[in-house]
Nucleic acid binder design. Structure first.
Lengths: 197, 197
DNA sequence: ATACTAGAACCGACCGGTCAGTCGGCAAGG
DNA sequence: CCTTGCCGACTGACCGGTCGGTTCTAGTAT
């Protein structure tokens, strides 16, 4: 997602980036369209040239963030081979992402409901997608004989929930300098011994 | 928390219960004070006899919910002996609570930010309290030789996150008739084999 | 090169709807 | 008849969205 990485200078991207910053800092309701416009260095009217409403602005920004997050994952998981290593890599990526893009992480975690049923639904779908991905991974591990037999749905949710929860601590406590490797090893230790055959 | 269990009939409790229902269904911003008053069978002005603002009403309601949730736990965990069994019991209680009090669960999970820094902080404190409780439990298990040595902070967060995530599925998919025992066994299976010595 | 112009891009003062919160008054009961 | 509890019509702040006007850009003619 080039629109969010700070490189594009067109108005739409400028507004989108400003929106990410302001929404992350204040949440949907406290964020004022005027403030986003100010932050983006454009007039309030200009915002409405590119987005039909505050809601749509949020929706677009949110989708960009999600895409960015998911793409980072897909790209960096492509060339791993063992399931064990892939799972570990998911933890690493999640933690790194949180450190590097804390405002985006803030948005992805905090804004749950409140923005309308439709977007909420979309968000849940994306989450389910990710869980499905982990599920597949685990299933593959079982088929390959790398992992013991288990309920893959529950296992995927347990893994996902655990990773998010540990990541949450980093956001909440504002810890920037953590030993990602150490945390990963600990989490994987907990999982593997319960997971591997 | 007797104020929320439907038994007390004084105006304040009536309003608190109505607030829980409406806030759960609509979220903080879409919920109208007038609607809560209507639901409680009182006039809008009356709400302001008992609560100084909409925010305070939410705050009080939220605290009641949290207390209710936490008390349920403390009460029913008091007389368990083995750590293994206590951890399992936490999962059972969490899942049962979600099924029995889905609107409250909705509130506890959804409303994260948006209501003001102060309450948000309070909520995080409560969550940390719960994690600390789990941490203690695990530490005790280690000391007793029931569990292997590990980073208890991470382990507690992993456990907490996993339980919440699996519970989340029940809320989201509206699954009422689940085999709690089966889910518990699966989760505990995943954990124990990674946790026990 | 310069002048002209259409229309795209941009802007911010203003409008209007929506509630949170108020307040004057009513009813019950002591 | 006074106090206490209750009520809901009203008020005013707030902010999303609009719109008339301005500036910028690029195409064309001279």
């Amino acid at each position: 997602m080039t629109e969010l990485d700070g490189s594009s200078t067109d108005k739409r991207s400028q507004i989108l980036r400003a929106a990410a910053r302001v929404f992350a800092a204040k949440g949907f309701h406290k964020a004022k369209v005027e403030e986003i416009a100010l932050e983006a260095g454009v007039g309030k009217g200009t915002v409405y040239e590119y987005f039909s409403s505050k809601k749509e602005l949020f929706r677009e920004m949110f989708k960009s963030c999600s895409m960015f997050y998911l793409e980072t994952f897909r790209r960096r998981l492509a060339d791993e081979k063992s399931v064990k290593y892939k799972l570990r890599q998911i933890i690493v990526l999640h933690l790194e992402f949180i450190q590097r893009h804390s405002e985006i992480a803030m948005i992805l975690l905090h804004e749950h409901a409140e923005i309308g049923e439709q977007l909420h639904q979309w968000m849940l779908e994306k989450q389910e997608e990710k869980i499905a991905f982990i599920k597949e991974l685990i299933q593959q591990g079982i088929d390959d004989g790398e992992l013991r037999n288990m309920d893959v749905d529950i296992a995927a949710r347990v893994f996902f929930g655990a990773v998010v929860a540990v990541g949450g601590r980093l956001i909440i406590h504002g810890i920037k300098e953590v030993d990602v490797d150490y945390i990963c090893d600990e989490i994987m230790g907990l999982f593997l011994e319960g997971i591997k055959k």
